[in-house]
Design a protein around this nucleic acid. Structure first.
Lengths: 338, 338
DNA sequence: TGGAACTGCGTTACCGTTAACGTTCCGCGC
DNA sequence: GCGCGGAACGTTAACGGTAACGCAGTTCCA
C-alpha cells in the first residue's frame, strides 16, 4: 500500500518548461516522431536526460490508442521447452518494440483464466497462450475483447485467432509407427495424469493408434506426478516392472533419462530389456553415452514464427490461421530392431 | 501500431450509469473497499459482470499513488536455479496482490540497465535484480528513483537497498576445503569466461583460496562458452586432458554431468581419474547412478524470503539489509579420499 | 437532547500523456 | 504582391480511474 510516485520525478511538463517548448514538442522528440527540427529535438533530449525524465508508461497507455505490451501464458518455466519458445518470441518482439509480460499457469486452466482477466486490464496489444485446450470461459473472453491471440506449441483446426505449433497427435503417431517398424509390440507411456498435459495426452493417443493399427498390445499408461521430471521418469520405469512391456514412451526426454537410470540401476539394459523413447530432443541428450530415440521439436522456431505471425497480424497483414511445424525424428540407440 | 481499445469496452462510467450510482461507488465496490453497503456492492458487481467490465490497470496506475507491479530481472530462464527463485517469489507476491513482470538479461549488464529504464516507466512498486554486480549506472538510477530494490541470489555488504542470497565466495571456499580435506591437490574450475557469471567467479575464487591455503596447486581455470550447459561441461572436461588435475569443479551440476559423461566416454573414471564437484543440487542429481558432490543451494527459499523481505520493506517494516542463507554440502560419490 | 462519530454515498480535481486540430512562419511560384 | 503549401510547433480535450473532501442521515451516549 506504499510507494508514492517519487516526488522529484520529472514529468513531460517539467521538461517542456525547462526547454521552453510545448508538451507536444517534448512528446514528439522523445518518441522520435516527425514534426520537430533536429536542433530542437536534440536540445529537448539533452534536457530530458539532465532531468532524468522517464516517460510514464501508464499514462502513455491510457492516452494512446495502443499499448506495446503482449501478455504470455506458459505452463511452467521449469522446462527448457517453454524457455526456448519464450526466448524465440521475446527476441522478435523486442525488436518490434513490444514488451512481454509472462505468467505461468502450472498447467491449471483456471489460473490461465484469471491470468487473462488480470492481463486484459492492461489492454495489451495481444495475448499468447500455450496449447489449444483452455478453460471454457477463456475463448469467449478473448473473442469478446477482440484482442489478437496466438496459441503456440499445439495446433488445432479451429484456433481462437491464430496458432503456431506442432501436431502432437501426428508426432506421437510417427514415433509409434517407428517403434512398430522396429518390431516393438508392447508399448507403455509414462506421463502425467490424464488431462494434466493435453499435448502429452495427444501424443500418447497417437502412439496408441500406431500400435493398434499394427495389431500390437494396447498402450499401457503409467501416470506419475511430482515436480522432479527425472524422478518421475524413474518412478514410471519402476512401476513398469512385471508389466511385460518392450518399449516405454516418455512424456519428455527428462523423464526418459530418469527411466533409463532407474532401469540400469536394477541391472536392466536399454534397449535390450526395454526400448526407450523420449520427446523434445533437449540439451541433455547431447552428452548421453547412447543417443536417445526422440523427437526434436522446433521449439525456438515455434517462438520465432509465432511472434512473426502475430506481429503481421497486428499490422493487419494476412497470415495463416494455422501453422504446423515439423519435428525431427532422431533414431537413437535406445530403440533397436528386435 | 494497431489495436484501438475495443470500442465496446465497458468503463467504470458505464457501470455506474447502469447501476444508478456514482463512479466512486463502483470503484469501491470493485476494489472491495469500505464505504459501500453489501446490497449496493453486490448489485454493482452483478452489473459490472454483465457488462464484462474489466478495470483499466493503466488508468488505475496513473490515478493511484501506487502500482501493484514488481519488475524482476533474471539472467536467464534456461536454468532451474532462476526458475526456482522466481517461482518462490511469485507465489509470495501473488498472495500479496502484486503482479510481476520478468525480463531476462542473458548475463548482459547493459541489457539490465535498459531493462531498468523501461521498467521504471511503469512506476513499479519495487524492482528485483539478480546478483550484486551491475552496470555502473544502474545503482544511481535506482537510488534516484527511490524505488525499493531487492538483490537476490548473491549477497554483498553494501546492497542497493536489501539483498537476500548466499555467499558465493564462502560456498566456493567450503567446497574447496572439503576437497582439500579429502586429499585433492590439483584443482580445476570449469566455467564461463571471467566476468560473464560474477557469482561463479566468486565461487572459483573461494575454491582457489582453499587450495592456496593448503599449499596445493593453483586453480586451473577452463573457460567454455555456448548455450548447452551439458555440452559445455563435456568440452571443459575434454580440455582438461593432460593438465594433470585431480579434481574438477564445475560451474553447475549440469556442466558437471556433461563433464562426467565426457570423461567416461573416453574410458576415464570418476572419481578415480578425476574428482567432480557440481553446484546447486538440481533435480537431475536425484537419478544419477552415483551421487554427485555438490552444494545444494536454497533457491526457492531465497525467492520466498526475498519476496517476504521486500513486502515487509514495502510496508515500511524494518528488515535486514543483508540476508545470507546457507547451502548444504552433499558429500557425494564423485569425490573420494585419495 | 444536543452534538460527536459513524455510515454510505456523491463531487470535483487531478494523474501524465497523446490525438486531433490550430496556428505561425517561411519560401516560392506566378 | 498574393495566395498557397508545408514545416515546426502550440492548444485543448480526452484517456479511465482514484483520492480527498463534502454532506446528508443515523446512531450513540453523556
Amino acid at each position: 500500500m506504499p510507494r508514492k510516485t517519487a516526488p522529484g520525478q520529472a514529468r513531460i511538463h517539467d521538461v517542456a518548461e525547462a526547454a521552453g517548448v510545448s508538451l507536444m514538442t517534448v512528446s514528439r522528440s522523445v518518441r522520435g516522431l516527425d514534426g520537430v527540427s533536429e536542433t530542437t529535438r536534440s536540445r529537448v533530449l539533452a534536457i530530458a536526460q539532465k532531468l532524468n525524465y522517464i516517460p510514464n508508461s501508464n499514462a502513455r497507455a491510457l492516452a494512446s490508442t495502443h499499448t506495446p505490451i503482449i501478455g504470455i501464458s506458459l505452463p511452467t518455466l521449469f522446462n527448457d521447452v517453454f524457455a526456448d519458445v519464450l526466448s524465440g518470441m521475446r527476441s522478435t518482439f523486442e525488436q518490434a518494440g513490444y514488451a512481454t509480460i509472462v505468467e505461468t499457469s502450472d498447467y491449471d486452466p483456471e489460473r490461465d483464466l484469471s491470468w487473462a482477466e488480470r492481463t486484459l486490464g492492461f489492454r495489451p496489444a495481444a495475448m499468447i497462450l500455450t496449447g489449444c485446450d483452455h478453460a471454457p470461459d477463456l475463448r469467449p473472453l478473448l473473442l469478446r475483447e477482440q484482442v489478437p491471440t496466438l496459441e503456440i506449441w499445439d495446433t488445432t483446426d479451429d484456433p481462437i485467432d491464430i496458432c503456431v505449433g506442432i501436431d502432437h497427435f501426428a508426432e506421437g503417431s510417427r514415433l509409434g509407427q517407428y517403434a512398430v517398424s522396429l518390431g516393438y509390440r508392447a508399448p507403455a507411456f509414462v506421463g502425467a495424469p490424464e488431462g494434466f498435459d493435453r499435448r502429452a495426452d495427444k501424443r500418447a493417443a497417437g502412439i496408441a493408434l500406431a500400435f493398434a493399427e499394427a495389431g500390437a498390445k494396447t498402450l499401457e499408461r503409467v501416470r506419475v506426478t511430482g515436480t522432479n521430471a527425472f524422478a518421475m521418469g524413474a518412478e514410471g520405469m519402476a512401476r513398469l516392472r512385471g508389466h511385460d512391456r518392450d518399449v516405454a514412451f516418455f512424456l519428455s526426454d527428462h523423464l526418459a533419462f530418469g527411466g533409463i537410470m532407474a532401469l540400469e540401476r536394477e541391472g536392466g539394459r536399454v534397449p535390450a530389456d526395454m526400448g526407450v523413447v523420449g520427446f523434445n530432443g533437449v540439451d541433455l541428450t547431447a552428452v548421453l553415452p547412447r543417443t536417445m530415440t526422440t523427437m526434436v521439436t522446433p521449439r525456438r522456431k515455434i517462438g520465432v514464427v509465432g511472434a512473426r505471425h502475430l506481429l503481421a497480424r497486428l499490422n493487419n497483414v494476412n497470415v495463416a490461421k494455422v501453422t504446423r511445424l515439423t519435428s525431427t525424428l532422431v533414431e537413437g540407440e535406445t530403440l533397436q530392431h528386435r
